[in-house]
């Protein structure tokens, strides 16, 4: 078992360590739920110990501000307070800290739904690389379903809904939507069209996971969409010594995000799993960060990977998606 799989398993268990809930059908209601995990993990799962940032952000947006108007018309101060207290600052800050530290590494190393996708994609079937344009869908999910609809799609009573969780999130269906009705007979009676829709979405994603690398992360995860830009501005950086690459294609074969690491190392879709670094026969891909030990490998010409060469020139590295390659593996 490789290290990443072990970390993914441990993270999934720790995130859902309320084992009692799996037998009683009741969710955890302790203080740990004040905080979030940096991954998609439904807090309505009987095992969840922490809140999901997507769910928490939406309930903060849907519940609005905390000011109680003194009169029939809210004052300017009350309106301002409502905007301030109705914005999910804590979640925004938490996810910004996560992104600034490691970009999307939490997707590759800690996310239980990411683990599920990795495992299903291991099944020996033909694989498909969908058009890259489909990866833009996750930004649409973030803006429309997580932010705009909870803010502005209000019913006649003035209430809005956590649209992403309600209409799309397959993790919520898998973790809570199936388990809770199984454990609570009362809930089975209220399953209806919405449940059928959510089960359809879940089954479609599960099927896609077999043939496509991390389809949910690529197309529909708002956490991935939020963290994606940080891949270019995080303390954790990946570098490839492109000048020594022999174009063997080993990294491309194992990339869990379906990318070509030599040219797309800092792509917003990279989940920082480091599988490419693990399989590179020449050890040309390096992860560097202030909180990681400095690379110790030495190049044949005496220069340190990612550092200055003896002659004072910088090594050739790839750190964005605009770099063309000599061939396409």
């Amino acid at each position: 078992m490789n290290l990443r799989l072990l970390v993914q398993l441990v993270a999934s268990v720790v995130t859902n360590a309320n084992l009692k809930g799996f037998f009683t059908g009741k969710i955890y209601d302790g203080v740990l739920k004040r905080g979030c995990v940096p991954t998609l993990n439904c807090y309505s799962c009987p095992g969840a110990l922490f809140s999901c940032p997507v769910g928490a952000a939406q309930v903060t947006l849907t519940s609005g501000g905390t000011a109680e108007p003194a009169g029939p018309v809210p004052t300017l101060r009350e309106r301002l307070w409502n905007v301030l207290s109705g914005t999910p600052w804590f979640i925004l800050g938490f996810m910004t800290v996560v992104g600034a530290l490691a970009g999307r590494a939490t997707c590759g190393w800690l996310c239980p739904f990411g683990l599920l996708q990795d495992l299903l994609h291991r099944l020996p079937t033909p694989k498909w690389r969908p058009p890259k344009a489909m990866r833009l869908l996750k930004y649409l999910c973030l803006v429309v379903l997580v932010v705009l609809m909870p803010l502005f799609w209000v019913d006649s009573f003035g209430y809005s809904e956590p649209a992403y969780c309600k209409y799309l999130c397959p993790a919520g269906t898998l973790q809570g939507g199936i388990l809770l009705p199984l454990l609570n007979p009362d809930l089975r009676g209220v399953l209806g069209k919405l449940f059928a829709w959510k089960m359809t979405v879940l089954l479609l994603f599960l099927a896609a996971m077999v043939f496509v690398a991390r389809p949910f992360c690529s197309w529909a995860c708002p956490i991935g969409a939020f963290l994606a830009p940080f891949n270019r501005a995080s303390l954790l950086r990946l570098q490839v010594e492109a000048d020594r690459c022999v174009k063997c294609g080993a990294c491309r074969k194992v990339c869990v995000a379906g990318l070509d690491p030599v040219t797309e190392l800092d792509s917003g879709d990279c989940v920082r799993c480091l599988e490419c670094a693990r399989v590179c026969p020449l050890h040309l891909i390096h992860a560097e960060a202030p909180f990681l030990p400095a690379p110790t490998r030495t190049r044949p010409d005496g220069a340190q990977p990612g550092g200055a060469q003896p002659g004072g020139a910088q090594p050739a590295t790839v750190s964005d998606t605009s770099a063309p390659t000599a061939d396409s593996h």
Binding site: I27, Y28, D29, K33, C42, Y43, S44, S51, G55, A56, V59, E161, P162, C165, K166, C169, G172, T173, Q175, G176, G177, L180, L187, V190, L191, L194, F195, W197, K198, M199
Partner: peptide, 10 residues
């Protein structure tokens, strides 16, 4: 988060 979000789970 300490209450089950029925909508969220379908």
């Amino acid at each position: 988060a300490t209450q089950v979000c029925l909508q969220c789970i379908g």
